[in-house]
């Protein structure tokens, strides 16, 4: 089962997962905006987004969990970001670049396990790696260093928590749920789960 090259099936799967999550990202962006607008009078606006930041790491983790080939996490996140840009997000051009950075973080975590471990630990770690990389980028890009360090530390802590919840726990549940329905039988994840079998009477 160690085929490393991508088939058309894999690529379309990644593109479609990317498209689904691009829509989710945009919807969540609006939700986050509402949340942070509520917090704006207290000057806590960034925390609104930190709470749900893990959602943005979900596409890469879920796709990697299903397809289980090197590079899947990175490419899916980039595709999701590209579709998000095409749908007209308000984050600007660099959404594609943030996609590359987040995807790279997720990819690193799976690579650290040599693409052999696909469990809650590696998935949570992929979320955390994404969070670290993207935070370094934002420190420069959004000039977060103009904000006091104690607030930044708080932000990072909340972001880690969110990464574990969304890209670790929820993605694992979603992947396992998909595997149980049997639709992903032809992917690597399908081999790990037993689906209910329906026997024909003819047999």
């Amino acid at each position: 089962m160690k085929q490393k090259h991508w088939e058309l099936k894999d690529v379309i799967m990644m593109a479609i997962l990317g498209a689904v999550f691009a829509a989710v990202y945009l919807a969540v962006f609006e939700g986050g905006l509402a949340l942070s607008t509520l917090l704006t009078p207290f000057g806590l606006a960034p925390y609104g987004f930190e709470l749900i930041y893990g959602v943005w790491f979900m596409a890469s983790t879920l796709a990697a969990y299903i397809i289980r080939k090197p590079g899947v996490a990175l490419i899916t996140e980039v595709l999701a970001a590209a579709v998000e840009l095409l749908l007209g997000n308000s984050g600007g051009m660099t959404v594609v670049l943030t996609g590359v950075i987040q995807g790279l973080g997720a990819e690193l975590a799976f690579a650290a396990f040599r693409y052999r471990k696909w469990n809650l630990l590696s998935m949570s770690l992929s979320g955390i790696f994404s969070a670290i990389l993207i935070f370094c980028f934002e420190l420069y890009y959004l000039s977060y260093y103009l904000v006091s360090p104690s607030v930044l530390a708080g932000q990072l802590a909340v972001r880690f928590l969110s990464a574990i919840v969304f890209s670790g726990i929820i993605c694992k549940l979603a992947g396992d749920g998909l595997a149980k329905t049997g639709v992903v039988k032809s992917y690597a994840i399908g081999a790990t789960v037993k689906t209910a079998r329906v026997y024909d009477e003819e047999e």
Binding site: G43, A45, P46, Y145, L146, V147, S148, V151
Partner: peptide, 8 residues
């Protein structure tokens, strides 16, 4: 408001 309140 974030930049205004929490200036480093």
């Amino acid at each position: 408001f974030t930049g205004y309140r929490f200036a480093a």
